[in-house]
């Protein structure tokens, strides 16, 4: 499952522009992920300039 560190995230929206599934979206001052649509392609994680995105293996398994 994709994990967003809201403390680190600066809400730049870069990951939103890259997400092929449109799972990520910026709401008011907050990045959110629709986990039902996310395929864990990890593109957003590898892009994030501040490293605010990660994956939670325990939940994914």
């Amino acid at each position: 499952m994709l994990v967003i560190n809201q403390e680190t995230c600066l809400e730049c929206g870069g990951c939103v522009a890259l997400c092929p599934e449109e799972a990520l979206f910026l709401s008011f001052n907050r990045l959110e992920c629709n986990q039902d649509v996310c395929t864990m392609c990890l593109i957003c994680i590898s892009f994030c300039p501040v490293g605010a995105l990660g994956e939670n293996h325990a939940v994914a398994i």
Binding site: G14, A17, L18, I43, S46, F47, C48, P49, V50
Partner: peptide, 12 residues
Amino acid sequence: NLCNRDEVFAAA
């Protein structure tokens, strides 16, 4: 207009 990860700049 989906962006390609390998072509964009990550900026800080």
